[in-house]
Each structure stands twice: as structure tokens, then as C-alpha cells.
Design a protein around this nucleic acid. Structure first.
Lengths: 341, 341
DNA sequence: TCCAAAATTGAAAACGGTTTGGTTGCTTGT
DNA sequence: ACAAGCAACCAAACCGTTTTCAATTTTGGA
């Protein structure tokens, strides 16, 4: 059913009908009610493509998905979905062809030009992220999930990675640990740098020099968690505690410790960062895992919300949210054993 | 840059330019080349919304995301993305408001009416799935990922869950196991029924009566894996082997066995279904996990491909793919111990 | 009661492309 | 030399809305 036909049925002009449905003020309440009722009854709804052409709005928020198919991604999206479900806004997933630098810029450029999205969410930004510069230059509204040091005004939401890891590390130090290993995310992204910095600061403020031999970074996989932890533990002067970048990493660390006959929480302490997944909870691990916790899903919800604000005119300059991160202590952390100090 | 302006620059009519770019035959090769070159040089690309309005194509495939934010989902999407990256087709993620039945139908109905997608992928269908009936009735092209027994012609791609679980179970029986537990996915979905059926068939063909006390189902979470496994193992006549529905479930089963001092592969055997996640691999578990394996990512890629075929006119009746599932034996399966038989 | 101002409603012009139905030249075959 | 056929191009209609501008009706104050 088209507008013209529908309008005829209701006995009004297309103009008035359009206005009534879009909630314009210059249409009387009685008319609006009549139109709304008829729309439901006759099953009329405006053709999205026509609306989009006319208004220039795409009705969608773009999220670029890296090749890795990160498990975080689904949670974040689920969170966004929670906020957008009642809205007239879709989530458009844009696949990234190659991790190639130039290609990625090209992808964003094309995405903007194609006008398929009203706004873009940028993930895992780097300190000097070209994407941010580009989007700003092109005038596309965007929100950065994470932080960048780039000198371009932009909206962002991030969790306080530095403080989180600093606190976690400090806690380990307070427990008497001196040799603490760190398994970080892929280098380059700001969050990894922040965590690195938090780690170092905690050590240094206690007079401990960070040991590069105990620091590694890479994808958040069970496998890398295992490999790094294992190689650290096999060093002549092994760590007594670990700070792990993700739940998957933690699984690997647990496995490595076990494979060497070490008991977690007693021989080796572990704190990981937990993005809160419904299918794998820190509390249920054995022993239960101490973690810095921040819900990825909540971040998704809030990001969606902020993007909507952005689209309804709020200035990006006002939108900066830094979320504190909880530290939840469970059984995987305990005092350092004397023998290893 | 708009078509009109661009056409003027190239010295041709909008008509010819449009045709040249869309690859129509009635334009000379020289002209086409000239236009293509100019388009790149001047950065012209047609306004998507205008194209969509005119052609009626939405340029997107819809995927409805359940609330759970399943970890499978991201892999599947990543797979789709792999196929669609070179195509002019987006992935539209449609959030599902409530697991409420009626609401879900409403969601699909609105989605179709809104014309935001050219096709829909339906996940985890039930044997008599209303969504399939609805989409068929509404004339929206769709592909079912999974299978349904519904008497409505439709395209589908599924893995052979029944054969997979039957083979896994048979293998356990061959190893001497008689008390085998099954932790299945949420009841209702066809795949869960197929797995259940494969499990029962394997047992019955060996003269073993399935014990309802050893069968459970629920979400694929670490926690449920643990809870079910633990409760089974604490029964008077505990199982000596497990068939687990997912990697996460397997993690829980491992944990439960360990918590009771049982050694996996010796005291208790485990086979799980592995959808192949980059961040958690069966091979790396300790002991390494025997698994029925089928790549979720590959399924996503193929589904995207099939949907494109559907859209270019191939009949849904021709599109039925049943993928065999590998059984990979590793260390988590071993002969049943005499004491427990 | 009458008139200006305010409240409603409509006609028609966009929005930016695609596609129908020509038109124009140029080859051919006779 | 001429009609027919064909290749290459173009003008204008159309996709289904929103929105500008103008027309009409109501309302309120003098």
C-alpha cells in the first residue's frame, strides 16, 4: 500500500497523512488519531527507501567487523541491539576485507560516500587513528569505542583500562608478588597501551622494574594465553602472578599452570579482564577467577544511545565517557609463596 | 557528486552513464571505459538510497539476532562477511525484542514490509517453524540455516547433526561405554532434536536403552555444562562418557570431572561438538578434546553465497545442502574403565 | 459582526537515480 | 541509391516519500 492510495482511503492528502504519521505539530489531534488508526488497520507503512532518499537519512548505524570474528563483538552488538530495538535504526555490519591499512581507509571512505549509514562506531582505536581523522574530515558522525590521542574532536566511550590494570597489579603486589607477568592484547590499540601503562605504573610505584621477559601481547585466544604463560613459567625466574587480557587468555593461563602442576591461587595468582560473557563466567572457573570487570554488552547499549544523541544534534565534544572498572577478587589470587619471592 | 553533474563532466547523458556503470550491453566499450575511469577519478558513486528506491532492491541481507548474543553468531557473521565483502550487499542485524512468540512473528512481518532487506537468514529453526511459513507466505526470499520439517518449499543449509552425534555416540559405545550422558542444546530447535535422535539411535542399535536421567538440555554455557555434568556424575550410577553440545559445555564438563577428581580420557570420556572458534580450540584443551567438527564460519560464507544465488533467481527448491560432520578423536576419549561398566 | 492571525490542509516540487521508448547516424544488402 | 537493421545515445517518466509554499478554514479580539 502506497501513501497516495492510503491517503485516498483516509480521505486526506498525502501531505497531511505524512505529517500525521511523522508527528508534525501542524496537524490536529483528531486527524492524527484517525490516520494512525487507519495505518494500523490498513497496514500502511512508508517505504523506507523513499523516506531515506528524501530525508537523506540512512536509518542505520555502521559497525566495521574485523576479520577475526572476535567474541567480544557479538556481545557489543547484542548490547547495541538492546537499545536500538525500539528505534527506527538498524545495525549495519560492514565486513573488513583485509587488515591492510590503505584498504581500511578506503573502506571507510566508501562507506561514507555510499551514505548507507548515518553514523559509524569505531572500535579499538589507535592513539593516532587515521580513521578518526578521516571520518572527521568527511563530516560523518561517529563514536569511538575506546580512546585515541588524536587531535581531532570526537565522541568517545571507553573503560578505564589503565586504572583497572593498575589496580589489579597493585593488588598482586600487595599480596607480595614481585614477578608479575602481563599478557596484553594486540599492540597498537590504545587500550593495550593503557593497560601496559597501568601495569608499569603499578610496578614502578612500588619500586619494581617491569621485566620485558614477562610481557607479551597478541590476540585474545586460549592458545596464546597458554603459550605465553607456559613459556614464562618455564623461565629460570618464573612469575608468581599473571595479569591476563581476556577470559580466553585466562583459560590458557589456567591450563599452562595446571600442566606444570601449579595450583592457581596458591602457586600462581591470576587476574584477568572480564568483559562479562553469558557463556563463560569468571565466577564459575575453578578456582574462580579474580577479574577486572566491565560489561561489553552495557557498553554496546550505551554506545548506541550516545550515537542516537549524536544524530539528534548533541555535540561530539560533550560526549566523553570514561567508565570505571570493577575489580572482583575471587579465588585465583592469593599471597605470593615465600619460595618464589 | 550527483549523476547529473557527473554526466555533464563526462559529456554524456545521465542515461548512458547509468547504463555504462551498471554494465548494460547497449553502451560501447570505449564509452564504458571512459565513464568508469571518470567515476573513479571524480569520485562518483550512485546514491544508494536513490538506487534502492528505484530498483526496489534493499542491498542487504537480514539476520535476526536473538537476545542471547550467542558466540556462534559472530563466527557465522564473520563467515557471511567473507563472502559479501566484494558484493554490493550489506548485512543487516535485526535485534529481537523479546523471545515472545507473537512478537517474533510481528518482527518478521514488519521486517518484510519495511523492505529493508532483500532476503533473510533464519537460524535454529523448529520442526514446524512459523517463521518459515510466514516468510514463504509473504514472498520474501529466505534461507534457513538448520532444518525444518515444515511443508513449505524453502532453501536450507544444515549440518548432519544426527549422523554426527550418532557416530560420536557409537564410537563411545565401541570403546565400551554403556552409561553415556548427553548435554543437548535448548529443546525445540530441530538441531537439538536431530542430535537427540542420533544419540538414541546409536544407543538403541547397540541394545542400550537411553536413560532420561543422563540427558539434559539448555543454553550452551560453561555453567550449564558444569551443573549438568556434575549432577550426573554424582548419581548412584554415573555416566562414563559425555556427549556435549558445544565447546562451552565441554569446558563445564571438564571442570565438573576435575572437581570430582576424575581424569578425562581415562575415568570419563568426552566428545563435544566444535563449531571451530579461533579463540578456543579443541586441540588445545587438556586433555585435547575429541569433537564432531563443522566450521560455523564456513557455513556463514556458504549461506551468504546461497542467498546471493537465491536473489539472482535460483529456485529455493534446488538449494538444500546437508554438510557432513567430521569426527576428530583426541585424548578426551578412551576405553571405558571396567569398574564402571 | 468583521478582520487579522493562527491553525489546518493541499498541490506540486524536490530527492537522485533507473528504465522505457524513442531518436540519430551508420552499416548493410539489393 | 534506398530501405532496413543496428549500434549508440538521450529525454522524460517514474520510484514513494517529504517538504515548501500557498490556500483554506477557524479562532479570537475589537
Amino acid at each position: 500500500m502506497k501513501l497516495k492510495e492510503f491517503a485516498k482511503q483516509v480521505g486526506l492528502s498525502p501531505t497531511t497523512v505524512s505529517r500525521a504519521l511523522s508527528g508534525y505539530p501542524e496537524v490536529s489531534e483528531t486527524t492524527r488519531a484517525r490516520v494512525a488508526e487507519a495505518a494500523v488497520r490498513l497496514g500502511y507503512s512508508p517505504n523506507v527507501n523513499a523516506v531515506r532518499l528524501k530525508t537523506g537519512r540512512a536509518g542505520a548505524i555502521g559497525v566495521v567487523m574485523g576479520r577475526a570474528g572476535e567474541f567480544h563483538f557479538a556481545e557489543f552488538m547484542a548490547g547495541m541491539a538492546e537499545r536500538l530495538v525500539a528505534e527506527e535504526t538498524d545495525i549495519l555490519v560492514i565486513p573488513m576485507a583485509d587488515p591492510n591499512q590503505e584498504d581500511e581507509m578506503q573502506l571507510y571512505r566508501r562507506l561514507v560516500e555510499s551514505r548507507r549509514v548515518d553514523a559509524i562506531i569505531v572500535h579499538s582505536p589507535k592513539p593516532n587513528d587515521e580513521r578518526i581523522a578521516l571520518l572527521h574530515e568527511l563530516g560523518m558522525p561517529f563514536l569511538v569505542h575506546g580512546r585515541s590521542a588524536i587531535d581531532v574532536p570526537h565522541a568517545w566511550l571507553d573503560i578505564d583500562n589503565e586504572a583497572a590494570i593498575m589496580r589489579a597489579t597493585s593488588h598482586l603486589i600487595d599480596l607480595g608478588h614481585r614477578r608479575i607477568a602481563m599478557i596484553n592484547g594486540r599492540p597498537g590499540a590504545t587500550y593495550a597501551l593503557h593497560r601496559d601503562s597501568g601495569f608499569r605504573k603499578a610496578l614502578q610505584s612500588h619500586g619494581i622494574e617491569p621485566d620485558p621477559q614477562l610481557m607479551a601481547s597478541g590476540n585474545f585466544t586460549d592458545e596464546l594465553g597458554f603459550r605465553f604463560a607456559r613459556s614464562f613459567l618455564e623461565q629460570p625466574n618464573p612469575p608468581t602472578a599473571f595479569v591476563a587480557g581476556s577470559m580466553m587468555t585466562a583459560l590458557g593461563v589456567y591450563r599452562a599452570a595446571r600442566s606444570l602442576g601449579l595450583q592457581i591461587g596458591r602457586d600462581v595468582s591470576v587476574i584477568a579482564h572480564d568483559d562479562v560473557f553469558p557463556y563463560l563466567t569468571a565466577d564459575n572457573m575453578v578456582p574462580s577467577l579474580s577479574a577486572t570487570r566491565s560489561s561489553m554488552r552495557a557498553a554496546g547499549t550505551r554506545c548506541a544511545d550516545l550515537v542516537l544523541q549524536l544524530l539528534s544534534g548533541r555535540s561530539p565534544l560533550e560526549i566523553h565517557e570514561l567508565w570505571p572498572v570493577e575489580l572482583i577478587l575471587r579465588e585465583s589470587t592469593g599471597p605470593a609463596r615465600q619460595s618464589t619471592s
